[in-house]
């Protein structure tokens, strides 16, 4: 049986893990490769590196990080952040990434999804969607009907609204050849109040490709809820695992006890 995936995300800046990792027993907690190894031991199902380097030169450093990771860690690796074109994708895949996650460039040039999936295969093209609830569309009850909420797509690291509906964009991304969607709720992100089940369900109902839910994880119950109630195939968390408030092992053991298929 296909298991649900638990995916830690590392924010990497200029080749170093940021967000103040506090791993014990690591000589250098800022080296992405060491952190990746630690997560591998903890039975993470995949890894995501998000490159948040500001300058173009420093973005090149991620290739070296990916190379060293692929030499030391034998698990699926997705890399996102600052990917603009086919050459960026090819370089990351050749360095050892299994998938690339594209956000802003996909919104600006949707044909990039088509070209990239045609060239490298859908299985390695992840479209990342940052969604935020549109305020004017909060659920309103009118004569017994409930208007479902809508979510705006944001680009440029959550700074710029793209004037796209998240559900419509997810469908379009699938049609263009995306193999997976990495869905982040900007409303839930950082709150630790749980994943955005509404948004996640709206997306998983609309597409027929795997969806990774992201944003809002605060306790192990949140993983259970999103994986059993929203149709998500995988759940991603960053700071929760970084700060070891929860370990991946704890989450998986809990899920297993509750009857969710996980690998542990």
């Amino acid at each position: 049986m296909l298991t649900k995936r638990i995916i830690p995300c590392l924010d990497v800046k200029d080749g170093r893990v940021v967000k103040g990792v506090k791993f014990l027993h690591l000589k250098d907690a800022g080296d992405p490769v060491l952190v990746a190894k630690r997560y591998e031991q903890d039975q993470a199902d995949e890894l995501v590196f998000l490159d948040i380097s500001a300058s173009a030169e420093n973005r090149g450093i991620i290739l070296d990080v990916v190379r060293r990771t692929a030499e030391n860690v034998f698990m699926p690796l997705t890399v996102g952040g600052g990917i603009r074109d086919l050459a960026d994708i090819r370089n990351l895949l050749n360095a050892g990434a299994d998938k690339v996650s594209i956000n802003t460039a996909a919104v600006k040039h949707p044909e990039l999804i088509k070209e990239a999936s045609g060239k490298f295969g859908s299985q390695c093209i992840v479209v990342a969607i940052d969604g935020k609830k549109r305020p004017q569309c909060l659920p309103v009850r009118q004569a017994g009907t409930v208007h479902s909420p809508q979510w705006e797509v944001y680009i440029n690291g959550g700074r710029t609204p793209a004037e796209l509906d998240a559900v419509a964009w997810a469908k379009k991304a699938e049609r263009l050849g995306a193999g997976e969607i990495l869905l982040t709720s900007m409303d839930a992100d950082g709150t630790k109040n749980g994943y955005d089940l509404h948004l996640t369900k709206a997306i998983t109902d609309a597409v027929n490709i795997p969806v990774i839910a992201s944003g809002g994880a605060g306790k192990k119950e949140d993983f259970y809820t999103v994986l059993t109630e929203s149709g998500a195939d995988a759940a991603l968390a960053a700071s929760l695992f970084h700060y070891q408030e929860l370990t991946i092992k704890e989450v998986k053991e809990y899920l297993k006890k509750k009857g969710v298929p996980v690998r542990c």
């Binding site: 296909l2 298991t3 199902d45 027929n208 490709i209 795997p210 195939d233």
Partner: peptide, 13 residues
């Protein structure tokens, strides 16, 4: 089949 999520992606036994 189109009834399944495709690609089949993740850990399976």
């Amino acid at each position: 089949s189109n009834k399944l999520k495709v690609p089949h992606m993740g850990w399976n036994n």
